[in-house]
Amino acid sequence: MAKVNLAVIYYSSTGTNYQLAKWAEEGAKNAGAEVKLVKVPELAPKEAIASNPAWEKHLEETKDVPTAAHEDLEWADAIIFSVPTRFGNMPAQMRQFIDTTGGLWAEGKLVNKVVSAMSSASNAHGGQEATILSLYTSMFHWGAIIAGPGYTDPVQFASGGNPYGVSVTVGQDGQMQEDVEEAAKHQAKRTVQVAEWVKQGKQ
């Protein structure tokens, strides 16, 4: 069977969700997938970015990461999203990207994509679960298949136990408060595995 094509699509202002995306990329490659790591466009005004040195630095450091395009969605058998929480929802940058997919949706090109998501916030109950679920709401409209990690591996408990997707708390120092590297890799592996089942069934 042909390799699973996985798109890891992220938005990150200061680097946390970029790191989650990189771990997912590594986990998916280890599971045998062909992987594209892409970011959605930054929409924030330059003044806002300039007011936060960490944001400005991260934007410069990731300037060469390819920008997500509709072609990536068509190519992908599976998609992992990595986004920070904004008041319990995905950030506007990711929302805007998803909102441009109406043409693909109308043509049925998003049906049966296997999807999973990860998130972060600056406190333990800052909306990580709500953010992931808000993203999944759009995926149900796509006709996608959600591959949440559930409790399919003990690593879930060691990383906070979020069954909807890996989530992490980021302290005021910008550092992750939980060790979620292995959980992110497991979530990617599970997403690839489910996509393999779907792809095999479609052949």
Rank of each mutant, 00 (worst) to 15 (best):
A2F: 12
K3Q: 13
A7G: 03
V8N: 11
V8L: 02
I9V: 15
Y11A: 00
T14N: 07
N17L: 07
A21L: 06
W23T: 11
W23R: 08
A24G: 07
E25Y: 09
E25K: 14
A28E: 14
N30W: 07
G32D: 09
V35T: 11
L37N: 12
K39D: 11
V40R: 12
E42T: 06
P45E: 15
K46C: 00
A48M: 09
A48W: 06
N52S: 07
W55T: 04
E60R: 13
E60W: 04
E61H: 01
K63L: 03
D64C: 05
P66G: 04
P66I: 00
A68M: 03
A69K: 08
H70R: 04
E74I: 14
E74Q: 13
E74R: 13
A78G: 07
A78R: 11
V83A: 10
M90D: 02
M90Y: 11
M90R: 02
M90I: 10
M94W: 15
F97Q: 04
I98A: 05
I98K: 06
T100C: 11
T100K: 12
G103L: 08
A106Y: 08
A106C: 02
A106W: 09
N112P: 00
V114A: 05
V115T: 08
S116C: 09
S119P: 00
S120E: 04
S120P: 01
S122G: 12
H125W: 12
G127T: 04
Q128G: 10
I132E: 03
S134I: 03
Y136C: 01
T137F: 15
M139H: 14
F140M: 10
F140D: 06
I145Q: 03
A147G: 00
T152N: 12
D153G: 01
P154Y: 10
V155P: 00
A158Q: 14
S159A: 15
G165T: 13
V166M: 01
V170S: 10
G171C: 05
Q172E: 12
Q172V: 01
D173N: 09
G174H: 06
G174M: 05
D179L: 08
V180P: 00
E181V: 14
E182D: 14
A184K: 04
K185W: 09
K185N: 07
H186F: 15
A188I: 14
Q193M: 12
